[in-house]
Design a protein around this nucleic acid. Sequence first.
DNA 1: AAGGAAATCAACCGCCCCATG
DNA 2: ACATGGGGCGGTTGATTTCCT
Length: 269
Amino acid sequence: MVRAPCCEKKGLKKGQWTLEEDEILTSYINKHGHSNWRALPKHAGLLRCGKSCRLRWINYLRPDIKRGNFTNEEEEIIIKMHELLGNRWSGMAAKLPGRTDNEIKNVWHTHLKKRLLNNQPNSNTKKRVSKQKIKSSNSNSNSSTLTQSYEPSNSPSNYFHEIETTSSNSTFSSDFSSQGKNKDNSINCEDSFVTMPEIDESFWSETITDDEISSTMPTNSMTISNELPNQQYPFNNSVENFQNTFDDGMDFWVDVFIRSGESTELPEF
DNA sequence: AAGGAAATCAACCGCCCCATG
DNA sequence: ACATGGGGCGGTTGATTTCCT
């Protein structure tokens, strides 16, 4: 049986979004939400496929999107999560607030993969400066709704504070093939753990300078200084919070991985 | 300065999973 | 149990930008 195309192909616009389209979509979603992507373009008056609208919103128009170059720490996180999850871009995006799976995927394919192949510790040495594309009719000029300047965020690694790298002896299966969809939280993890809090938007709002980053973040280490204030590491050991935090299997494995720090005993895929 | 090569990234495509009837 | 529709995901493409000679 052949499935019907997701949307009527005829008469639908493709390619770059215009500022006007962006505004229409943003306005509509702000007003009505996006309960039905397929019906959305019709109701909003857009000549776009519902999927295209969804993608545009998720990857670009969403208010919580974080633009700009990835920090070294974010790249390190991506590399490490890729070791754990493979090409589970959405899983990685879930742990990098403000970043989209598409963006992570692009970063991986453009320079992280090459960096690993070349065994380079830092890709920024040759990384091109990301500039907003200037197109006459292009939505990329929609700075009215999006923050174009990138502020170096507070370190995500702060949340991985004091991870015991020797605690990698957690007894878990190496089968990750179904973790993404696994809703069963009854995974037994009796070894040492800490609660990984959800990273809220305020996490990204604080800015630090590059110098601060470099002084608190050794290039090749996920461990950061103990001298930073405690509130930067909102961990506690509550089992209750632990259970609430791990809403799905993916979160669990990501956090197990993160806690394991530099462990070399990663599962193979 | 010009032109080609390489890199980047937004967007599309098609498949898969899940919810629903 | 099965069919169907919708959402989500990962792979890929192609336009654009930047670098290099």
